[in-house]
Design a protein around this nucleic acid. Structure first.
Lengths: 196, 196
DNA sequence: GTGTCAAGAACGAATGTTCTTTTTTAGTTG
DNA sequence: CAACTAAAAAAGAACATTCGTTCTTGACAC
């Protein structure tokens, strides 16, 4: 029989995850040590190991936190009137600001996925979700605004998809790498190449 | 007075760098240890520290090796007849295959740049070079094929630039992350959004 | 033989994790 | 409602291991 409520435990977990995210942001995913996380959280080693199995477990929780949020943004578009491809991609990118998922953290997660199976699989499912959402919106746009039949719309969407995803990824790379990244200019550029 | 020739020393350095690159590719930049590099190179700790100051020094050499090659490709375009933006971006991406700069390694370097000043500065200079090259080709195309005057060409280029760079970065991310990445489809998609 | 190179044992510091101890908690009893 | 209890959570010292680096030794080139 537990001595604290489930809510309390979950809150503690979130606390630790948040501290870990701050460390990952500052020092990088791989370079962050347990001591760093312990110090940042203000807790002790024993406390943390009561909530997570180990460093790998914390990293996965942090990665989930970081890349999971991207989907929610896209779902919100569902209610609005059929958005153009440029609007869909724009939403994906602007949703980043103010999120836990700082671009530099996303970059860290991507790099970690090259090396760690768990992160890679997590990343695949998220990218699959994003593509599915893009596909939904693009198809609708193709039929309603480009006046294409189902077959032509499918082809049009398939052609557009890689570049649309790539533009979103480029946004993340550039905003992470360049200190004076001009977000508005990038969005304008995206609108321009995706024509409207 | 050295007992071996300068060529011998440089060859040794390259040997070590190559071994390090193999390790970085397999285990990731941050997770690779000196023991890994020592074992992979077949040399000893003493030998390696005779050629590099330390791990940081090796990482920088590897990073230079990885991202430095991107420029050479672009320079080759200079001779050919004014390439279209799509051709420029395509060249940037296709040049990756068969290079030391495997996309997954580039991703590692980008992530490392978030954390290590030396790598970040190196990355900035490379990206600046790439943009400069893009700028050169885009301007020429704007004047010769879009019949724009200098001022309009500059604006046209500025609008196109962020997306063009982003598309190239998206290619790297996708080819690194997705096991079944369809390179040809991506290139077709780029040609499509950059119209021709 | 003198001066450089390579080998690999050796070093302290830092790593992720566990273990023991102390503190806190919720539930029970008087 | 106060005191007690059993159990769980937190603290932090302690652990073996691995880290990056240095040092000592022997081998080899000129």
């Amino acid at each position: 029989m537990p001595k604290v409520t489930a809510e309390y435990r979950e809150a503690r977990r979130d606390e630790i995850t948040a501290a870990a995210l701050r460390c990952f942001q500052a020092r990088g995913l791989a370079a962050t040590s347990m001591s760093d996380i312990i110090a940042e959280s203000g807790l002790s080693a024993g406390a943390i190991y009561g909530h997570f199995e180990g460093k790998h477990d914390i990293m996965m929780a942090a990665a989930r936190e970081v890349i999971g949020h991207r989907i929610a943004d896209l779902r919100e578009l569902a209610g609005e009137s059929a958005p153009s491809p440029a609007e869909v991609v724009t939403r994906m990118m602007t949703g980043l600001s103010g999120d836990v998922a700082k671009p530099s953290l996303l970059l860290q997660v991507w790099a970690q996925a090259m090396v760690e199976d768990g992160v890679r699989e997590l990343l695949w499912t998220v990218f699959a979700d994003i593509r599915e959402a893009f596909d939904h919106y693009f198809m609708r746009w193709a039929v309603e605004h480009e006046s294409l039949d189902e077959v032509a719309a499918r082809e049009w969407t398939a052609t557009l998809m890689p570049a649309a995803v790539g533009l979103a990824q480029g946004y993340i790379v550039q905003s992470a790498v360049f200190p004076a990244f001009d977000s508005a200019a990038y969005l304008a550029s995206v609108r321009s190449v995706l024509q409207q």
